[in-house]
Amino acid sequence: MDEIALTAGTLYVIVLLRAGGTFAVGWLAGAGTRRSRFARRISSEKFRRAERAIQRWGAPVVAASFLTVGFQTAANFLAGSMRMPLPRYLPALLLGGAAWALIYATAGLGVLALLGRLFAERTALGVSAVAVALLAGCGVVMYRRRRAAPSSGRTVADNEA
């Protein structure tokens, strides 16, 4: 139990600093970002979707964003760039960050304990499980990049140059 509390507390501090920092960067950047060299990055579909959700629902979207993968950074940055008032943002940050920390502390420690036991008792199976997880992650990244590539025949590398 102490291990989970320590891990959750550490993760909570990390998420508060990371998400709060992202909000602060968004706050400072404001509308000027849309006219800068970063405009292409923040005009991605992920950012546009986050912006629409924040405009419509506000703080609950920020809190719920912590339960997603890949949406929370966009939500916190856009909440800052849209100048969401701190009395609305901070409760969302505190609640969403707590949920994130508890989920990652409990599920994360459970997965690590399972992998530790697997490596100790059946090393080949543990190595295989990690290899499958890494291959699946690489597959997801490749799938998303190919899907996001423009249909004009240009590759993602061409667009980043």
Rank of each mutant, 00 (worst) to 15 (best):
D2P: 10
I4M: 15
A5K: 10
A5S: 14
L6Y: 05
L6C: 03
A8P: 00
A8Q: 02
G9P: 01
T10W: 04
T10F: 12
T10Y: 12
T10P: 05
T10M: 11
T10K: 13
L11C: 07
L11R: 01
L11Y: 01
L11D: 03
V13P: 00
I14P: 00
I14G: 08
I14L: 14
L16Y: 09
L17R: 09
L17I: 11
L17A: 15
L17C: 12
R18F: 11
R18K: 13
R18E: 04
A19R: 05
A19I: 09
G21F: 06
T22F: 02
T22C: 07
A24M: 06
V25F: 04
V25H: 00
V25C: 11
G26T: 07
W27F: 05
L28V: 11
L28G: 10
L28R: 11
A29F: 03
A29T: 14
A29I: 09
A29N: 10
G30K: 06
A31V: 08
A31C: 06
G32S: 10
G32M: 10
T33C: 06
R34V: 12
R34T: 14
R35H: 14
R35N: 08
R35L: 15
R35T: 14
S36C: 10
S36H: 07
S36D: 12
S36F: 11
R37W: 11
R37G: 11
R37C: 07
F38W: 10
F38I: 08
A39F: 05
A39L: 08
R40C: 04
R41E: 07
R41A: 08
S43R: 10
S44L: 10
E45C: 03
E45M: 15
E45V: 15
E45G: 13
E45T: 15
K46S: 15
R48I: 14
R48T: 15
R48K: 15
R49C: 13
A50P: 09
A50S: 15
E51C: 04
E51Y: 01
R52F: 02
R52N: 07
A53T: 08
Q55Y: 06
R56T: 09
R56D: 02
W57D: 05
W57Y: 13
G58Q: 05
G58C: 06
A59C: 04
A59F: 00
A59V: 03
P60H: 02
P60Q: 03
P60C: 02
V61P: 01
V61F: 00
V62S: 01
V62F: 00
A63S: 00
S65K: 02
S65A: 07
S65E: 02
F66P: 01
F66E: 00
F66Q: 03
F66A: 03
L67I: 08
L67Y: 03
T68A: 08
T68W: 04
F71C: 13
F71W: 06
Q72H: 09
T73W: 02
T73D: 12
A74V: 12
A74D: 14
A75M: 12
A75E: 12
A75F: 04
